[in-house]
Write a protein that binds this DNA or RNA. Structure first.
Length: 193
DNA sequence: ACCGGGATGTTCT
DNA sequence: GAACATCCCGGTG
């Protein structure tokens, strides 16, 4: 089966369109890789829950850049989370990566995530996903189209049979917007279902 | 299984 | 000073 890197144009669309299309794509970081099974869309200036809602800051600058780059942020004093920048440059739309099925480099993932009881827990959650793949501050701004810093998103032809939708998780505002997309019953979901 | 609290530090008000 | 796109652990049932 052929593997193709997703092109710039894939990301240059509304985050609500990109988000479900990212499901079952392979996220590759160096020697580790997994399948994206859960994401959330964030819609720039129109979205009170988005980091971009109040305009550009040093932290969220990557979101305002060109699409197809990784936006990595630090939160809760100890966790990194990773997004894919979408839409036109300046739009600051993004898709948060929340769940991963571990595929390659699973031994390395187990080594850095000793608290994971089962392999399906390795990438189950946005911060866990980053630890499992080794994503940190150094990856902020990496270009997913060129394979910058070893990070790339690949289409291997696999498509989800069904995509489920729900409200976003962990927010205090705009919680009612049904902008979470996931592959039901896939290993690596941040919560069962 | 489910729930509650604490960890930990950057960012913005 | 408060909030935070989270996770882990230890309680209870």
């Amino acid at each position: 089966m052929t593997e193709e890197v997703l092109a710039r144009g894939f990301y240059r669309r509304d985050s609500l369109a990109v988000a479900p299309d990212l499901l079952d794509r392979l996220l590759v970081v160096g020697d580790r890789a997994g399948r994206i099974v859960e994401v959330e869309a964030y819609c720039g200036a129109d979205d009170p829950a988005s980091h971009a809602f109040r305009g550009p800051t040093p932290r969220n600058l990557t979101m305002f850049g060109p699409p197809g780059h990784l936006y990595v942020y630090f939160t809760y004093g100890m966790h990194f989370c990773a997004n894919v920048v979408c839409g036109e440059e300046g739009e600051a739309a993004a898709v948060l990566l929340r769940g991963l099925t571990a595929l390659r480099g699973v031994d390395a993932m187990r080594a850095v995530r000793p608290t994971a009881r089962r392999d399906r827990d390795l990438g189950a959650g946005p911060a866990r996903l980053c630890v499992a793949l080794g994503i940190g501050r150094a990856h902020d701004g990496a270009d997913l189209v060129t394979g910058d810093r070893g990070v790339v998103v690949v289409d291997d032809g696999t498509r989800p049979a069904v995509v489920s939708v729900s409200g976003r998780i962990g927010l205090r505002v705009a919680t009612d917007r049904p902008w979470r997309f996931y592959v039901p019953d896939a290993p690596g979901l941040s919560r069962p279902g």
